[in-house]
Nucleic acid binder design. Structure first.
Lengths: 146, 146
DNA sequence: TTAAGTATATTGATATATCAATAATTAATA
DNA sequence: TATTAATTATTGATATATCAATATACTTAA
């Protein structure tokens, strides 16, 4: 197939970027409306911690596709808010886990998050979502090599 | 359909986030390898400016899905690098356009950007990309209302 | 035509992202 | 075991993102 230049609106990266931004923005407003002072990125970390009780910062970073530096700073914030705690694993690493306050927050938010998530894909079929997943995972794989 | 909680890896936002990050990271490395000191976000702005000769910051921001505040700061940087210039439109707004240096950079980068883009979707069919576009545009629409 | 409302760009505060450098510690190997 | 190599977390510098506030300037309506 001939490679060719295309205007921005026809480039898949543009579609992805636009959808991600709309989603992130709506999600941040959504948390605010619930009276919660957390961002959509912090939510992902909290949700992950609710699934796997205890993990090092490195493991957590990999799981949520974040840089070690980002994780350090995000954890600093939600630790200050009393949502998570760091426990020494060995002398260079920590296990991270939810506090009671963090657990309760996650339990409270999950049903709302599910509703919110379903709103985003209203009007789409399971088949379409399967293709969507395949495409995203392919793009991820194609760019993860080097 | 019953709404339900799912682990992170089964949530579409997670797939999107991961693919976006892999893409952005690879793209930044790609520009660096070309000897170019621009980010993938700056590239989008430059590319858009090459498609529409002259536009206000507001129009540009809408076109590339960025906040006015983000555009101001990004333009400050690439203006300092001599890639774009701001020309007074009326007394409160600017028209933004590429300089000669900016135009030449875009012309030089486009063929590389096309190759790069095609690498990301290797192994995917046109049909799949059509579904991909539909899903992303639906998500965008579903979250743009409020 | 003045007053009120709207639009554009900027700035400050804060959160996140990347890269590079560093410190401390653990693991591998000669 | 002693040295070297790899790992984990942190920090600094810079870019981007959002929200709120502000300053100008344009537009509309009374």
């Amino acid at each position: 197939m001939k490679e060719e230049d295309k205007p921005l609106e026809e480039v898949y990266f543009f579609w992805m970027d636009r959808a991600m931004k709309a989603q992130r923005k709506a999600k941040n407003r959504f948390f605010k409306k619930l009276g919660l002072d957390i961002t959509s990125d912090q939510w992902i970390i909290l949700k992950r911690l609710s699934e796997i009780e205890s993990q090092t910062q490195k493991e957590l970073a990999d799981a949520v596709s974040k840089d070690p530096a980002s994780i350090t700073r995000s954890l600093d914030i939600i630790e200050k808010d009393g949502l998570i705690e760091r426990i020494s694993a060995d002398r260079r690493s920590f296990k991270v886990m939810l506090t009671k306050k963090g657990s309760e927050l996650v339990k409270r938010v999950i049903p709302e998050a599910v509703k919110y998530r379903n709103k985003g894909i209203e009007g789409l079929s399971d088949d379409e979502m399967q293709v969507f997943k395949k495409v995203l995972n392919t793009i991820h794989a194609n760019f993860s090599g080097d």
